[in-house]
Simulated scan of single mutants.
Amino acid sequence: MPRAGLTPQRIVEAAVDLVDTAGLDRLSVSALARGFGVKDASLYSHIRGLADLRARLAVHCAAEFADRIGSAVAGRSGRDALAAFAGAYRDYAVSHPGRYAATQLELPPEVLAGSPGHAALVEHTYLLLRPYALAEPDGTDAVRLLRSTFHGFAALEATGAFHAAREVPASWNRIVEALHTLLTNWPPTPTHP
């Protein structure tokens, strides 16, 4: 019989707290069971194991991340939307490193296909790029550029890797401005004979 009070949602919420305080690499069924004061077996009535837990965590965090970005960009376009998107992305990644790491997990195709948050993240990114009128494959290349830039900057910032005298927010603002300039003046795709 399942332990009273334990539900898949409560387990995922506990996992969210754990990964933000201890890190995604410290997530385990045993750690969560200890937090609930139960044996590991009590959790297996609600989840199928660590892989299932990680997938549920990723789906939960992707929805949360997408909501943050969606709220930030609502009613904005062009450079304003880019700055809002970038700011929400950076804030989430730096403020919630464990949750953000969960959004980057590789998921089975069927889980990814059923994750509204992951779909919303893709949709928000392509909507952000709409005013820049990039045809394919340039749209995909631009999405990869933005994701790589935001991810890389946030990852470095979160580990305290920026040591230059220049303030980090000043560099961030210049990078966002440079991205806007690049997206506005995207180079044409070369044609091959």
Score class of each variant (00 low, 15 high):
42 S>Y: 12
22 A>D: 15
131 P>A: 02
44 Y>L: 14
90 R>M: 03
115 S>A: 14
153 F>C: 02
77 S>P: 01
54 R>F: 09
24 L>C: 04
189 T>N: 14
136 E>M: 08
75 G>M: 08
133 A>V: 13
7 T>Y: 02
41 A>K: 11
62 A>Y: 09
111 V>R: 06
33 A>D: 13
3 R>V: 13
114 G>D: 14
54 R>E: 13
53 L>I: 06
123 E>V: 10
122 V>A: 11
12 V>D: 01
65 F>D: 04
87 G>A: 03
42 S>Q: 11
154 A>G: 04
85 F>H: 15
31 A>T: 07
11 I>P: 13
152 G>L: 11
145 L>C: 05
16 V>K: 00
152 G>M: 09
175 I>Q: 05
35 G>V: 05
65 F>Q: 10
75 G>P: 06
21 T>H: 14
148 S>P: 02
162 F>M: 06
186 W>C: 06
26 R>C: 05
119 A>F: 04
91 D>S: 13
94 V>Y: 03
4 A>Y: 13
146 L>D: 04
158 A>R: 15
45 S>D: 10
82 L>Y: 08
76 R>N: 06
120 A>R: 15
48 R>L: 04
104 Q>W: 02
77 S>E: 12
156 L>G: 12
141 D>G: 03
69 I>Y: 10
133 A>C: 05
103 T>N: 01
38 V>E: 11
134 L>M: 06
80 D>E: 15
110 E>H: 14
187 P>F: 03
115 S>D: 15
113 A>Y: 04
155 A>P: 01
155 A>G: 05
7 T>L: 02
6 L>P: 08
144 R>P: 01
180 H>L: 03
41 A>N: 08
103 T>L: 03
148 S>K: 00
142 A>H: 09
166 R>D: 08
24 L>M: 11
48 R>M: 01
5 G>P: 07
162 F>D: 10
114 G>L: 10
191 T>S: 15
28 S>M: 10
116 P>K: 12
124 H>G: 01
131 P>K: 07
1 M>D: 11
71 S>F: 07
185 N>V: 12
130 R>M: 12
67 D>Y: 02
84 A>N: 05
23 G>D: 08
28 S>F: 10
193 P>I: 02
43 L>E: 08
27 L>V: 07
100 Y>Q: 00
106 E>D: 13
7 T>R: 03
112 L>A: 15
74 A>R: 14
113 A>R: 10
66 A>G: 07
85 F>K: 09
